[in-house]
Each structure stands twice: as C-alpha cells, then as structure tokens.
Simulated scan of single mutants.
Amino acid sequence: MNEELRCIGCGSIIQSEDKQGLGYTPASAVKKGLETNELYCQRCFRLRHYNEIAPVSLTDDDFRRLLSHIRDTKALIVYVVDIFDVNGSIIPGLHRFVGDNPIMLVGNKEDVLPSSLRRNKLQDWLRQQVNQAGIRPVSTMLVSAKKNHQVEALLDEIDQRRGDRDVYVVGVTNVGKSTLINQILKLRTGVQDLITTSRFPGTTLDQIEIPLADGHQLVDTPGIIHPEQMAHVLPDKDLKIVAPQKEIKPRTYQLQDQQTIFLGGVARFDYLKGPKVGMVGYFDNNLPMHRTKLANADHFYAKHFGTLLTPPSGEDAKNFPPLHRFEFAAKEKSDLVFEGLGWMTVPAGSVVAGWAPTGVAVLMRPAMI
C-alpha cells in the first residue's frame, strides 16, 4: 500500500492488511475513495455514516505519547476498566502520566457479574484495586455499555465533575470502551455534525471528538494493548466461549487437595494443599470444566487437549502456546485470577497453582466476593 495514502478523516496511513489496525480500509474501498477523492479508513467511514465507533489499539510507546499530550491539557480522565477482568484492565503508571488531571473510574460490563453481588461493595473493591496501582479516582461508577445501564447517570456525573475541562476516555483493548462511546453517541444524536476526527500532532493516532454543549469535547482515544490478556492468544470464535456475554452463574466444586480442574484447554487449576472445601469458579457459562486427580493431570491434558478439552480445537489447538505454571499460597480468602478468563475463589491457608498460556498472566488478589 502506498504510504502516502492517508485517511482524510483522522490522518492514519491507509492499509488493507490488518483489520484491527489503524487506517484499515478494504482494497475495494481504497479504489472507490481514490475515484471520488474521499478516502476514509473503515473506522471513519462507519463513524460518518452510521455513528458507529470501531475499536483501535496502540502500543505502549504510542500510549506514552498520547498521555503526555493529555497531561499538558486541562482535562477530566474517564478511565474505563472491564469489571470481569480488572487486573487485565490496569494501565501501569496512569497516575503519573495524567498529571494533576482528575480521574473518574468506570467499571464496565457489570451485567456479567452475579446480580446477587452488592454493587456498593463491588465499587469499594474496585476502587481498592486501582488504589494499589497508585490511581486515586475522584469517583467510581459501574455501568453496562452493552445494556445501556447507568450510561445516562455516567454522563450526569461527567458533567458534574469536569468543570471547565475537556473529557478524555481511556482504557485498554477489550474493555468495551467503544461500545460505551457508541451509547453516549446515541444519547447525544440531537446535535448536528456530531462527530469530528483529528489526530495528535506528530503521530498517526486518531482521536474522536464528541462536542459538548459548552464548547468542550468528549474525546475517545484508541485502546491500549495489554499482551497478557487471554484475548491475544485465542481466535474470535473461541473468545465468544471464554468471554462472558451474559450474567455468569458461579460453579461450585467440592475439592480436596491433589485435585485439578481444567478450564477447557486454555487453563488449569491445581489444588495442592488445604482442607476439603467447596471452591467457586467464576467463568463464562459455556466454558467446559473438567475435574481429575492432580497425579493424572498431565496425561489427561496431553490425551484430551483439543478434543474433550476445548477451546481451542482443530488448527487453533496445533498453534496454541504451552501452559505456564504459577504457584501461590493464600494467606486470606483470595481469587486466583486467569487474566481475561475468570477466577477461582480459594480459602485462606490453601496452596494452589494456576496454569495459563505462555504470556497470559495468572495472579492472586483479595477475594472480590
């Protein structure tokens, strides 16, 4: 692709190879755009014609440049995290990058957590999690962008908090940030010429500016790539099995030590030491889980991976990275978290191990529930 071809909406270099990348445009659309002298990337085209924002992502270096720009502005930062994958949503060093600008914390996808969980308790827990990363939000809200739950309330809170500021919406990939922005657009479509696009000076990153009533802007920024997320090792068809779309139903297993639970073929939980106890797993309802003895686990995985233990399957199983082991001792009731997949809640005094594809993080945190 000719590097001189740029989207007239956002300035990104036009390319037809990477559908998830900046500037992606099907080759047929490039030809038509050149003929009409209106060459837009697919993201800008959808934005102009359908008021639909498609997600794009950026690297750590791109993100540092983006945030250094925000730090020099007078802005309210709306920081969106996936409430089902909080640890995978954390942006390291965010508090250092945004300077003195206030941060609003928004926990998205709250609809996938059990409805029995008290939301005020969940808000407190979420705030504590980001506090550990040095982030001190001025307020914390829970929303479901997909179900348009509490989005209007979020806009009211933004209006109260921003004062004489622009608003920047930031988050890692796969937290539902673009879905949230699209819901905001639906609530504000009475405005003519609603969307403008621009880019930060000196980069090919695009930002999307939504005009606010007082002349300020609500700015959507590209998502930051976190390579430790499960989403980066599974194809889309398998992500639909492991990433919850509906309210999850906790699954309880009566376990004694030296037992293993396989989470499809993508992860493994070993109960190494502790009392016989009911352990609860919080994973997508469609994810198959199989229990076996720890002594037999390696053989079981080698024999059934890609068939009984799925996803992955077929060609995807052949290219799937090997599982890497992490061991933990729980000093209090804790969650053993498989980033982007879910977690097992384990009792105090237990010793456990979590296995995940190489590159995907497994960690232990104080129990959410």
Rank of each mutant, 00 (worst) to 15 (best):
M1G: 13
E3A: 14
E4L: 14
R6E: 02
C7V: 08
I8W: 00
I8T: 09
C10N: 04
I13R: 15
I14V: 14
D18H: 13
L22I: 08
G23C: 09
G23Y: 02
A27Q: 15
V30L: 08
K31I: 15
K31D: 11
E35D: 13
E35A: 15
T36Q: 10
T36S: 14
N37E: 12
L39I: 06
C41H: 01
C41D: 04
R43L: 04
F45I: 07
R48T: 06
I53R: 02
D60G: 05
R64W: 00
R64H: 11
H69N: 11
T73Y: 10
T73A: 13
V78L: 09
Y79I: 06
V81R: 00
G88D: 05
S89N: 07
P92W: 03
G93E: 03
H95G: 13
F97Q: 11
V98E: 06
V98R: 02
M104G: 05
V106M: 09
G107N: 05
N120M: 12
N120Y: 12
Q123L: 15
Q123P: 04
D124R: 14
R127M: 14
Q132E: 13
S144D: 02
S144Y: 00
A145V: 05
A145F: 04
K146M: 07
V151S: 06
D156N: 15
D159I: 00
G163C: 11
D166R: 09
Y168H: 08
V169F: 04
G171D: 00
T173Y: 00
V175L: 07
G176Q: 05
G176M: 04
S178N: 10
S178I: 04
S178C: 08
L180A: 06
L180W: 05
I184A: 07
L187H: 14
Q192P: 08
Q192M: 10
D193R: 15
R199L: 08
Q207Y: 09
P211T: 09
L212A: 11
A213W: 05
L218K: 03
V219F: 01
D220K: 07
D220V: 09
I225M: 11
E228L: 07
E228S: 11
E228A: 11
V233Q: 01
L234M: 10
K237C: 12
D238P: 00
D238F: 06
L239T: 06
V242K: 00
V242T: 09
Q245H: 13
R251G: 02
Q259I: 02
G264E: 01
G264P: 00
D270W: 01
P275R: 08
G278S: 15
M279K: 05
V280R: 11
L287C: 05
H290C: 04
R291C: 01
T292S: 08
N296Y: 12
H299L: 13
K303Q: 13
H304W: 11
G306V: 01
T310V: 14
G314W: 07
G314K: 07
L323T: 05
H324M: 12
E327H: 12
F328V: 09
E332Y: 09
E332V: 15
K333I: 09
D335I: 02
V337H: 00
G340F: 01
G342M: 03
V352G: 05
A353I: 04
W355V: 07
V362L: 05
P366T: 03
A367W: 03
A367Q: 01
M368T: 03
I369M: 12
